[in-house]
């Protein structure tokens, strides 16, 4: 009994520690995003802002006037919003295409007997471990030749490549769990094969496809090496690249507050997705790598 209490106390302490460890840096950038430029330029080592201000949000999002009456610098918000649009566009298109291709492949792997199945899985595994930086030089050269340098497709194509392995594993694992006999059973009960597929298989497969889509989206949203190497302007630069090159309106003062604000803004979609779909993400992550 005594050891049980100990275990419970240990678990409770661990619970609190995990929350602090995971959320403290997030709380920190949120706090920093409310510190004004004057405060950070003078040095502001305390955790909370002395004089909270919305200036950074106004500047980064390009709305309203700053408290001193100045209008925010449109160049900052234009670049950031443009990068946000690129990130969303590129990540969504890459996710959609990658999931479609992966669904086809995973269906074949889970349900059909064909030669080269092991080879496909090995290629996927090899690509998941591939050092992306190795590709930067030759891709840079190739993309310039094909006029894909600094374009959306120039990033979408490699993002598909590097998300396909994860999507294929996750989906294969999900598809293996689907009781495919039910499709035949429905047909025996008089449903057409399309009806059987739509009414029986699609609802069973949808959660897996959706989970694969979330993981793919996270990857594309996060990717950095290719994003800085294969783009050169805000025409296709994504948020991580834009953030890392962001010098702010004043080239000589590091824009701590604005960087923190932009960081908070791009983290909001992640938090929303995590809040809504945490169970699915956990299932997807673990099923792909370890047979659950």
């Amino acid at each position: 009994m005594q050891s049980d209490t100990k275990t419970k106390a240990g678990t409770a302490v661990g619970f609190v520690l995990i929350l602090v460890w995971c959320l403290l840096p997030v709380a920190w950038i949120i706090s920093l995003s409310f510190k004004g430029a004057a405060e950070t330029a003078a040095g502001s080592p305390q955790f909370l802002p002395k004089d909270p201000t919305l200036d950074n949000y106004k500047t980064v999002l390009g709305v309203g006037n700053l408290s001193s009456g100045d209008a925010p610098d449109p160049a900052v918000s234009d670049d950031f919003l443009r990068a946000l649009l690129n990130s969303f566009g590129i990540a969504l298109v890459a996710t959609l295409l990658s999931v479609v291709f992966a669904t086809l492949a995973a269906y074949a792997i889970a349900r059909l007997e064909f030669r080269g199945k092991r080879l496909v899985l090995s290629i996927a595994l090899a690509i998941a471990m591939f050092p992306v930086v190795s590709l930067v030089g030759p891709l840079f050269d190739m993309w310039r030749t094909f006029h894909l340098f600094n374009t959306w497709p120039g990033l979408i194509i490699p993002y598909m490549t590097f998300t396909l392995p994860l999507a294929i594993w996750t989906l294969t694992a999900f598809f293996r769990e689907i009781p495919w006999e039910m499709e035949q059973a429905a047909q025996v009960d008089g449903a057409t094969s399309w009806q059987a597929f739509r009414k029986v298989i699609v609802p069973l497969a949808a959660p897996g496809v959706f989970t694969a889509a979330i993981l793919t989206f996270f990857f594309a949203w996060n990717e950095f090496v290719l994003a800085i190497s294969l783009t050169s302007t805000t025409g296709s630069r994504t948020v991580p690249a834009q953030l890392s090159f962001f010098v702010g309106p004043d080239p000589f003062n590091p824009p701590y507050g604005q960087l923190a604000t932009a960081s908070v803004v791009v983290t909001v979609p992640i938090i929303v997705i995590v809040l809504l779909f945490q169970r699915k993400i956990v299932a997807g992550l673990t099923s792909g790598a370890v047979k659950g």
Binding site: A41, N253, P254
Partner: peptide
């Protein structure tokens, strides 16, 4: 130190 940090030190 870059320009900004130097400026902050000088202002401190």
């Amino acid at each position: 130190a870059q320009e900004g940090q130097a400026g902050a030190t000088f202002g401190s």
